[in-house]
Amino acid sequence: MNRLLVLETIIQLKSFTKAAEVLGYTQSSVSQMVAGLEKEFGIQILKRSRTGVSLTPEGEEIYPYIVQALRQYQALQERAASLKGLETGTVRIGAITSVSCYWLPPLFKAFQEKYPNIEFVLQQGDFGMIVDWLKRGEIDFGLMTSEYGDGLNKVVLHETEMKAYLPSKHPLAKLDKVPIEKMQDDPFILVEGGGYSEPLAAFEKAGAKADVRYRIQDDYTIMAMVEAGLGIAILSELVGTRTDFDVVEKSVVPAVKRPVAVVYRDKETLPIASQHFIDFMIEHEKDLM
């Protein structure tokens, strides 16, 4: 199992040297373990280039099975630990930026007060990336919209409102609420959803069409662009909670909602720590903004 862990770390860091440093091995030992795996499987798994280390086509084929084996072994270890009365383990989460920034820190803190030996690994991405990570077994569960990801199990934690963000001197900034059809006349800055977009769905439902000029993954880059007068945007209300951008936040008519959910494949096969953290979030859903 150590060889599989070494291989996963090399892929994540794209480097034999960095993987050896993180795992506490010599680079020679890391190379020998990979060579042993390649000999055992009878294929070349990794290739080196100027940009780092990557999977060969054959490696791409078997890598999801390697990740799955590691997660199952992790679940086995945590189950054994729980039977001894220990709550240890790693929780691997994929989340959209607004949720990872505003919801997770206080939840992490409260959970670790109860289970101080739990570790968290957080990956930030759009909806499409999170679904891909789930399918490949790279994360235990995702925190994203419940409107996307066919075939996955979902538990809605909270419904957040998505607001219009406008330059401070924009004509629409004088309105109490912004009709979505009035937003189609301005350049629109779209937060990249990776397959689904609540704002675009809202425009379509209203019989309007956004004039999308920019597609950006980072919410705060979008806020800076709105401040600079490059366009307008519709983002989660969480984004405007702790920022000092010179922009105006307004509700949209009709209201644009985002049902944020815990998304996973099969809860029963998740590591024990992740099962506990999911239950913990559900129990504390009333504390979420």
Score class of each variant (00 low, 15 high):
Leu46Val: 05
Gly137Cys: 00
Gly193His: 04
Pro64Ala: 13
Glu119Asn: 13
Lys182Trp: 13
Ala273Arg: 12
Gln124Ser: 01
Arg213Gly: 03
Val239Ala: 10
Gln32Phe: 03
Ala35Phe: 07
Asp140Pro: 01
Val131Trp: 01
Ser29Gly: 10
Met183Gly: 09
Gly142Met: 05
Ser98Gln: 12
Pro171Asp: 05
Phe141Lys: 06
Met162Asn: 12
Gly125Asp: 02
Asp244Glu: 15
Val30Arg: 02
Glu61Val: 15
Gly59Cys: 03
Ala173Ile: 01
His170Trp: 06
Gly128Glu: 01
Lys177Gln: 14
Ile130Met: 10
Leu83Thr: 09
Phe108Ala: 02
Leu143Asn: 03
Gln184Glu: 09
Met281Asn: 04
Glu138Asp: 04
Val247Arg: 11
Tyr73His: 12
Pro179Phe: 05
Val248Met: 13
Arg136Gln: 06
Tyr63Asn: 05
Ile232Asn: 02
Ala255Leu: 12
Lys154Gln: 03
Arg213Ser: 09
Leu134Asp: 04
Phe127Leu: 08
Lys205Pro: 03
Arg71Ser: 10
Leu238Val: 03
Val248Leu: 10
Gln44Val: 13
Gly231Ser: 07
Ala233Asn: 08
Thr9Glu: 15
Pro187Met: 10
Asp211Gly: 00
Ser197Pro: 04
Asp186Phe: 15
Leu270Phe: 04
Asp211Cys: 02
Tyr73Arg: 12
Pro179Trp: 05
Arg242Glu: 10
Ile45Thr: 03
Ala273Ser: 15
Arg92Ala: 05
Gly207Ala: 07
Leu190Arg: 02
Pro116Lys: 03
Tyr73Cys: 04
Ala261Cys: 11
Ile11Ser: 08
Lys84Gln: 14
Pro106Ser: 07
